[in-house]
Structure formats: structure tokens, C-alpha cells
Design a protein around this nucleic acid. Structure first.
Length: 354
DNA sequence: CACTCCCGCCACGGT
DNA sequence: ACCGTGGCGGGAGTG
């Protein structure tokens, strides 16, 4: 039912986690934005945020209108490598260093635009790209990969990447995007938030190779707040102020094919083919194969026995959660989905016309 | 109060 | 016109 508003539940980081739970598995190739929004229970606008950030690090690639190709975590290392090369060429490291040393005004605006406007410019779409979340994401990554700074605060990142030399208010506005990116990255365990005693928080890049696949749930000895991917994949659809007004009716309609917009058919098909869960009630559950695996039997990853070479994992292109329990869960779902799907298909043939 | 960042308005470009 | 996309910043939530 209408749960009370909880900001954390609605965070981009959480959404991102859910996004992965939904798509980071075998057999996923194309992602439709409508379906994603429906299944994750968020507005379309938020999907754009996630997608743009993920595209920046190679996890997704735009395929067509409304559609993205899922490249998966396996694509990250290569993307990072490219970004690092670019960044080194553009001398990102020195920029951050300057910023952190001299605080403001360290970055001559012309030299900044030098690398921000690397490619052609002048044309409008390029200008737009310069301000895009995707590019900011990539530049943010470069800061970490190309400087030898252990910790980078968002302030510093903002100064390095967004400071135009005078407009402080604009800087604050643009900085909001860095928070977005940082949250997504945190949920992916690409970076980690670290608080100094002064209360200042900064981020540390997590070297993926040094900790298993970097995307799994860490053994977590320290009090680093690493997030675990749970089993709930919808963001609660409770608005900040006004309660209710969830779209479950719409979801049901789409699922049942009685939505009246012309693109409903497409959406419906998308949902039908993509969704490996089933829903129809307000409280999202995993449909006909509700997990009976709350505590999965496989739990032998104690000593990080799987921390072998994470790149090997990717080599056979089966980037999965290193966490066995989550893996098993997905395996369970896809199995269940398969059987359910076949069953449903048969039924449809028997009673056509829905 | 400062920091964080959700939310949705609305501009813009493509169809 | 309409729709997909996504920049942007107001202001709510949090510590």
C-alpha cells in the first residue's frame, strides 16, 4: 500500500541498484526505456539519468529511440581504459591537482574549455553534448583515473569540471549533477564515500581488481557502507509531498493490453518480452515464482574465494554478481521465467484474442 | 544551517 | 503537432 515517503528509497543510487537487478543477467540484450520505467516504478525522466550515466562508462549503448543495448559490467574495464587514455592526453591530473591546491580560480577557463571542447564545436548539438550528464560522467571518471589524488570531493570535482570562473550559483546548480553521478557510482561500488574528521566527505575510487569484481557485496569488514543488492526492484512510487497517485493501474493496463495510447502495444510487447517478473498488484512481488530463496544455500564466498581475477570473470562475458546468493536468485528467476513464459505462451495460443 | 539530491518543468531537436 | 530527450534549478529532506 502507499508506504510513507522515504527519500532513500527514491534515490538514484537505489534506482541504479534496482536497474542492475533487473538487467544484469543472462539473456538481456535490449532495454526499453518505457519498460524500465514501468518495472522500476519510476518516472521516465529518472531512467534517462541512469541511462546517461551508465552509457558514459560503457554499460549501455544507445541503440535506437527508446532503446539501449545492454553491454553489461564487462564493458566497463575497456571503457575505463579508454577514458584514462583520453584523460592522460588531456592532462586531467594536473587540473585536479591545481584545483585542490589553490582552491578556486585555479583553473583557467580557457584551458578548461580546451579539453571540454576537444572535438569540433560551434554546432549546437556539440554544445549540448558538452553539458551533458554523460560527458560529465566521463570527466568525473577521468579525474579519478588520471590524477594521483586518493580522495576527491565533489567540490573539487565541480571546480575542475564545471567552474566557469565567475558564476558561483551556476556552479552549485551544476554540482547537483555530480551528486547524481556519485550516487550511481557508489551503488555500483566504483567509488566509495569517505568522511574525514572535519566532516568533509570525499570519494575514493575503488580499484575493481583489488576487490573481487568490485560489484559484488564486499566482505565488508570495515564500516564502509557498501550496499547490497536486495530483492526489491521497484522504487516506491510515493511522491515527495503528495501521497499516492501511483501508476499501478497503468501498469496493469499495459500488461493487459488495454492501454489506449497508440504506442501501448509496443510497450506491452516490450514489457512482456523483457519482464521476467510479473506484477499486477500494488505491492510488487515477483509474480508466479516468488522467491523461496530468501536465504540461498550457496554461501561459500566467505573468504572471498571467488576473488580470483575479476577480469577472468569478464572474459567469458558472464558478468554476474560475485555474490553467490544474488547470483542464485537470478538463476532461479530466469529458470522460473522460462517455464512460466512457455506456459503462458501455450495458453495464449489456446485462447487467442486478449 | 549547510549539504544533499529528488522532482518535474520546459526547451529543444527529431519525426 | 507531437514525442523523446535531458538540462536545469527550486525546494524538500537530512544530519
Amino acid at each position: 500500500m502507499a508506504s510513507p515517503y522515504c527519500r532513500k528509497e527514491k534515490s538514484l543510487g537505489r534506482l541504479c541498484t534496482n536497474f542492475f537487478k533487473l538487467y544484469n543477467r543472462e539473456g538481456v540484450d535490449t532495454i526499453g526505456l518505457d519498460a524500465a520505467a514501468l518495472q522500476l516504478g519510476v518516472e521516465r525522466r529518472r531512467i534517462y539519468d541512469i541511462v546517461n550515466i551508465l552509457e558514459g562508462i560503457g554499460v549501455l549503448q544507445k541503440k535506437a529511440k527508446n532503446q539501449y543495448t545492454w553491454k553489461g559490467f564487462g564493458a566497463i574495464p575497456e571503457a575505463l581504459k579508454v577514458l584514462k587514455e583520453q584523460g592522460l592526453k588531456e592532462e586531467f591530473g594536473t587540473y585536479v591537482a591545481n584545483v585542490s591546491n589553490q582552491k578556486k580560480y585555479a583553473l583557467p577557463s580557457d584551458s578548461k574549455t580546451e579539453w571540454q571542447d576537444k572535438c569540433s564545436e560551434s554546432d549546437k548539438s556539440e554544445h549540448k553534448r558538452q553539458k551533458s550528464l554523460g560527458l560529465l560522467t566521463q570527466n568525473f571518471v577521468k579525474l579519478f583515473l588520471c590524477s594521483d589524488m586518493e580522495l576527491i570531493s565533489l567540490d573539487e570535482a565541480a571546480l575542475a569540471l564545471l567552474w566557469d570562473g565567475h558564476d558561483e550559483k551556476a556552479l552549485r546548480t551544476k554540482s547537483r549533477r555530480l551528486y547524481d553521478i556519485a550516487n550511481v557510482f557508489s551503488s555500483m561500488k566504483l567509488i566509495e564515500k569517505v568522511c574525514s574528521e572535519i566532516g568533509k566527505s570525499a570519494y575514493r575510487w575503488i580499484d575493481m581488481e583489488s576487490c573481487g569484481d568490485g560489484l559484488s557485496i564486499a566482505p565488508d569488514a570495515k564500516n564502509t557502507k557498501r550496499r547490497a543488492f536486495g530483492t526489491e526492484i521497484t522504487n516506491t512510487l510515493v511522491k515527495r509531498c503528495n501521497t499516492s497517485s501511483t501508476d499501478w493501474k497503468l501498469i496493469e493496463k499495459v500488461n493487459m493490453g488495454i492501454h489506449s495510447k497508440d504506442n501501448s502495444k509496443a510497450v506491452q510487447e516490450e514489457v512482456l518480452t523483457e519482464q521476467h517478473q510479473n506484477y499486477g498488484t500494488k505491492d510488487f512481488v515477483f509474480g508466479p515464482f516468488t522467491p523461496n530463496v530468501t536465504k540461498s544455500e550457496a554461501r561459500e564466498n566467505k573468504n572471498g574465494g571467488q576473488n580470483q581475477d575479476w577480469q577472468n570473470l569478464f572474459r567469458d562475458y558472464r558478468p554476474q554478481y560475485c555474490n553467490q546468493a544474488v547470483n542464485d536468485l537470478f538463476h532461479h528467476y530466469s529458470e522460473a521465467w522460462n517455464s512460466w513464459y512457455v506456459e503462458a505462451k501455450d495458453k495464449q495460443q489456446i485462447e487467442p484474442g486478449s
